[in-house]
Write a protein that binds this DNA or RNA. Structure first.
Lengths: 128, 128
DNA sequence: GCATATAGTATCCAAAATGATACTAATGGA
DNA sequence: TCCATTAGTATCATTTTGGATACTATATGC
């Protein structure tokens, strides 16, 4: 999504601005996983099997410059880098949970490859 | 943002899926404005001064196919088309409000051109 | 001496999103 | 007769995103 520097909105501007921070391809996911606690680079990579290193680095750096994520480097070999949410990032928790809840209630679950509930059918397909 | 068809996430998937629905460049804004009620095409265009017709049509159509927005065409001349939220769309209200509140509290207000509160300075700039 | 692991970079390319601009139809009013 | 209005389309160019691939450093274990 292209950034817009001058928000030409009068009313909904903060909505767009917030959406821009968390709207990268993997950012929602990353934030969501980091909500569970500090994670190393490779741990995150394992959680997102299809992400490339480039994108993982990239998205994490963007989250870092947005002040949402803290990056802690340990001078060891092999290197160790731990990522965690800042206070700022943790304050997104209600939003992330709202997104998750809405998605679970309103989107067809079948798009997700695996999930615990596969027999129960109380989920609404989009048209409903 | 590129769509991903097969959500490779096990846990945060609904977060990403929901984000995809509302993550278009103007979608957050459009949904936010439609929360206030039914709007005609040109009314929306006036609310988003920098949007092009192409993008407005485009984003509205996408919201429509996502089942979030209803498009009512009146066979008049000149044409009249009214856009409103579906139930599905209205159910996003908590999310949109959460995004707005978070943005107001955590983002530097100065990026926004105009807004009512310009004297009070209780907003935190990003670094805080 | 060599492979392994970690957390990256660098480069190039493809695809998707967005923007600019010009065009349309039908009717009412000046 | 001509212009304005509405809600679009069509076409093209540009920008932004995302993906593939190959490359790096260095201590450790074998």
């Amino acid at each position: 999504m292209a950034k817009h520097e001058s928000y030409d909105c009068v009313a909904g501007c903060p909505v767009e601005a917030t959406l821009e921070l968390i709207g990268g391809k993997w950012k929602g996911l990353l934030l969501y996983h980091l909500l569970e606690g500090t994670q190393r680079f490779n741990a995150l990579k394992r959680m997102l099997p299809n992400i490339t290193q480039r994108m993982l680095t990239n998205q994490l750096r963007e989250l870092e410059s947005a002040g949402l994520v803290h990056r802690q480097v340990y001078a060891e070999v092999p290197p160790r880098v731990e990522y965690s949410l800042t206070e700022h990032g943790r304050s997104l928790a209600p939003i992330l949970n709202a997104l998750k809840t809405w998605g679970e209630q309103h989107l067809d679950r079948s798009t997700c490859s695996q999930d615990s509930a596969s027999g129960t059918a109380e989920q609404a397909s989009i048209g409903a």
